[in-house]
Nucleic acid binder design. Structure first.
Lengths: 175, 175
DNA sequence: GCAAATTAATGATTTATTCAAG
DNA sequence: CTTGAATAAATCATTAATTTGC
């Protein structure tokens, strides 16, 4: 069963940017599980940009679909009650109100208010953060920061690195 | 509502070097889309170095992430020439046979064979595709592709978009 | 050297997607 | 089929770099 691997090519398919763009475009347009004929067409077309086989296309859609779903799921789940992750909650913003920036960040406001007050109004006053409102009130920086130990982000659970952290005693007068 | 813009401050946030360094450090450590709470913390900390609001932090991550990705894409794609989409779909793959790839794609073979021939045999000859078998035989790309008009997929009938398509004739020698 | 003019970066908004709930 | 939630992509707009003519 020696596949006709073009000699001098890696063992597994590596999509060229063009192929990738096209595949993604198709996916966006609704393609999810192309049938044999479709796979054939796609493969033939993509072959213009580099070595590719039908199975590559097939697998690509399989994987892409799965990972797309997985990603979304992660986003939803992590959302409900994320913001846990340690991060020593010394009253940095003791209980700042909310700070919804007009565009589409009301959710921030909602989140924040719901945990303290309930004046969930789109018209809430943008009370904003400890904001350096003026040079007269330096934001009183709590104990320095060291890369902040939050963020599960990428997907790798909360395993943030904690390198030399740019320690900087937060106390300078804002300029 | 004249914001108490410290006299001589611009309309939009301009990150101080310190703020920038910290944000970048966080990004390197995996931070990509901090949630409300995290944004608050970050903002509070960064406020030590100058005027800043939650939205600035939010936008910074949005933009940075997007542009980082864009940068990568540029580096890859820009290298090859522009690509894709253009002319109508002239007989792309007239009627290629079937191409069952060993793994678990028998169903593909089945599907294909059943709709054209009837030699539904798991042992069918792997006639394969036009496949770029070797660099010596350019896959002869039929008339370019235009998002390929297949896929009923999602359910919404074939209502593909048809925007300004970046025309480029599919004929380059695969690299 | 220095400003006006031009270009490159990047902050801020808007628009289009996605999947899943209802 | 419609709507909710949450982006990510595309775009607009302003600031910083830089180029250029003097």
């Amino acid at each position: 069963m020696s596949q006709t691997w073009s000699r001098s090519s890696s063992a597994r398919w590596c999509p060229t940017p063009e192929q990738l763009v096209i595949l993604e475009e198709m996916y966006r347009n609704g393609a999810r599980t192309p049938n044999a004929a479709q796979i054939q067409q796609i493969t033939a077309h993509l072959a213009c940009f580099g070595r590719i086989e039908g199975k590559n296309v097939f697998y690509w859609f399989q994987n892409h679909k799965a990972r797309e779903r997985q990603r979304l799921r992660r986003r939803l789940i992590g959302r409900h009650y994320q913001l846990l992750y340690s991060a020593p909650p010394p009253p940095p913003p003791p209980q700042v109100k909310y700070f919804p920036f007009h565009p589409l960040l009301e959710w921030v406001a909602k989140l924040t208010t719901s945990s303290s007050d309930a004046s969930s109004s789109q018209e809430a006053e943008w009370t904003a953060m400890p904001e350096a409102d003026d040079e007269s009130s330096p934001p009183a920086c709590h104990g320095a920061l060291r890369t902040l130990e939050l963020f599960p982000t990428t997907s790798t659970g909360g395993g943030l690195k904690d390198e030399g952290a740019t320690s900087s005693s937060c106390s300078a007068t804002i300029n």
